[in-house]
């Protein structure tokens, strides 16, 4: 079964003349680590927002773990998906424990079970000593790690990460990527966006390169590199398909 299936997806925001998505189509298998790559303005964030059910597509079909993204399945899909937004979606004035307790409560978890789970993840991400420190006192890497914990409290089968390693040091990045591999080994699907193509090449089993609201190419990073003899790495493949023109 496919983890994520997107068919002929179109989206034009109100007040915008240009469609953001123009018949986007791709598919990722369940239990894989997939990368959604593209230059700025390619439509990655809109795609993720539609996958999560926050934004509705104008037409086309989106399926998550076999469930069509529509009103009747929205709540079930919310249980399946965990999202790590690009921003640190935590309350800076609250400690990690307070933040995670709040989001855990929203998922319906409470009491000792929730606190044990929070402490387990804080230890896993090396944040146990800073558990009661306010988030605004954390370093960039610590904030990113806490941001991931908030997304996995309900053990999602599909973890969607929007540039999870942007602006973090090497140690934090290494820890985050190792966690994603481990989490994937436990059976979860991972969809990840990044501008760090070297990282994507090493992490992802499959990537979709999209531009101007369409899928340009999809495949295993190494396969894509071999298919294009002039390309030595995923970044070369990316530039081969999207060009060198600036996208400001």
């Amino acid at each position: 079964m496919s983890g994520i299936s997107v068919k002929e997806l179109y989206k034009t925001y109100k007040g915008s003349a240009e469609p953001t998505l123009k018949g986007l189509t791709f598919q990722f298998g369940e239990g894989r680590i997939a990368g959604l790559l593209g230059p700025n303005g390619a439509g990655k964030t809109t795609t993720i927002s539609i996958l999560c059910g926050i934004v509705r597509g104008d037409s086309g079909e989106v399926k998550i773990h076999g469930l069509k993204q529509q009103a009747s399945h929205r709540e079930t899909i919310k249980h399946i998906i965990g999202i790590v937004p690009q921003q640190i979606a935590l309350y800076p004035q609250l400690s990690a424990v307070e933040n995670l307790t709040y989001f855990g409560n929203l998922y319906g978890f409470k009491g000792k079970a929730l606190q044990e789970k929070i402490m387990h993840y804080l230890e896993l991400f090396g944040l146990e000593k800073s558990a009661h420190k306010e988030i605004h006192k954390y370093s960039g890497g610590m904030k990113r790690r806490a941001n991931i914990i908030a997304a996995i409290l309900h053990d999602p089968k599909l973890l969607v990460l929007d540039e999870p390693t942007a602006g973090v040091d090497v140690q934090s990045r290494s820890m985050i990527l190792q966690f994603l591999r481990d989490y994937n080994r436990q059976g979860a699907s991972i969809l990840y966006t990044s501008h760090l193509l070297e990282e994507a090449q090493s992490l992802c089993e499959e990537v979709v390169i999209m531009d101007e609201g369409r899928m340009i190419v999809q495949g295993n990073p190494l396969t894509l590199i071999h298919q294009h003899p002039d390309c030595n790495n995923l970044e070369d493949v990316f530039l081969h398909f999207t060009g060198n023109a600036l996208r400001d």
Binding site: G53, I54, K78, A89, Y107
Partner: peptide, 12 residues
């Protein structure tokens, strides 16, 4: 900061 997004993505 995305907290609203996170809250909206939580079932319920």
């Amino acid at each position: 900061d995305g907290s609203l997004l996170r809250m909206k993505l939580i079932p319920g």
